[in-house]
């Protein structure tokens, strides 16, 4: 469904991604894991169109997204949740969600989608009239995900949804992500929380220094020696 081929991306003269290739099939929950600065966020920005790659292709259902602007890519069915959520703090929870259904396709079914989002995140319904700036970190993250779902994406890109959350909330967050995936949304998840991400996903790719260095099922990678020592702090491996 989503196919990334030989992406090279730069920030100015600095090359951040070196020939990245991977794919996500319909209905899958795939993780992209790796250390800080490996290029995970950059990869998501390339897919969502916020950063134009210098070489390579991004394809959604065989359609090349290379020339499309970010707002157009949303219309085509890919929504990104930015790192830290980036909710509109001055607006209410409901206004944030309504903005999520900005594109024409999603606006027609907005009221139904809001019910669906409230079903996944009941907390958002309780807080709907509240200003987004007054929400806790976990609630903001829920709002950011809910807002992205309002666009009715085929593929949801999640950038560090566990970032800054208390451990108990991280677990809840991952349960909600599994639930979203079960409801038919294909998910590409970027995480530094490698163990939790690998336990959660069908498949995962490991990225280091802007290159894909490993791939496999979550369980495979969990038993992979270099992964255990590098990311899971497992000295006995």
């Amino acid at each position: 469904m989503l196919k990334i081929e030989n992406i090279n991306a730069f920030y100015g003269d600095l090359q951040a991604l070196w020939g990245i290739s991977f794919e996500v099939n319909e209905g899958e929950l795939v993780a992209l894991v790796g250390p800080n600065g490996a290029g995970k966020t950059t990869t998501l920005r390339v897919i969502s169109g916020l950063l134009k790659p210098r070489a390579g292709n991004v394809r959604l259902d065989n359609r090349d997204l290379g020339k499309e602007d970010a707002h157009k890519i949303v219309e085509l069915g890919i929504s990104q949740v930015l790192e830290g959520g980036k909710v509109f703090t001055a607006m209410s929870v409901l206004e944030n969600l309504e903005l999520g259904a900005f594109v024409g396709r999603a606006r027609k079914v907005r009221d139904e989608t809001i019910k669906w989002v409230y079903h996944i995140f009941p907390r958002l319904e309780e807080r709907k009239t509240q200003r987004a700036g007054t929400l806790s970190g976990g609630e903001r993250q829920m709002l950011a995900i809910g807002r992205a779902l309002m666009a009715k994406p085929k593929v949801l890109l999640l950038d560090e949804p566990s970032f800054g959350l208390a451990p108990i909330l991280v677990e809840q967050m991952f349960e909600m992500i599994t639930e979203i995936n079960k409801q038919g949304v294909t998910v590409l998840l970027v995480e530094q929380n490698v163990r939790a991400a690998l336990e959660l996903t069908n498949r995962a790719y490991v990225i280091e220094n802007g290159r894909i260095v490993g791939q496999g099922t979550g369980d495979d990678l969990l038993s992979f020696e270099s992964i255990r020592s590098a990311y899971l702090g497992d000295c006995n491996a």
């Binding site: 969502s48 916020l50 970010a70 707002h71 157009k72 949303v74 929504s79 903005l99 594109v103």
Partner: peptide, 9 residues
């Protein structure tokens, strides 16, 4: 960026 990622040009 958030606006663009919601489909707002």
């Amino acid at each position: 960026d958030a606006a663009e990622s919601l489909g707002v040009s």
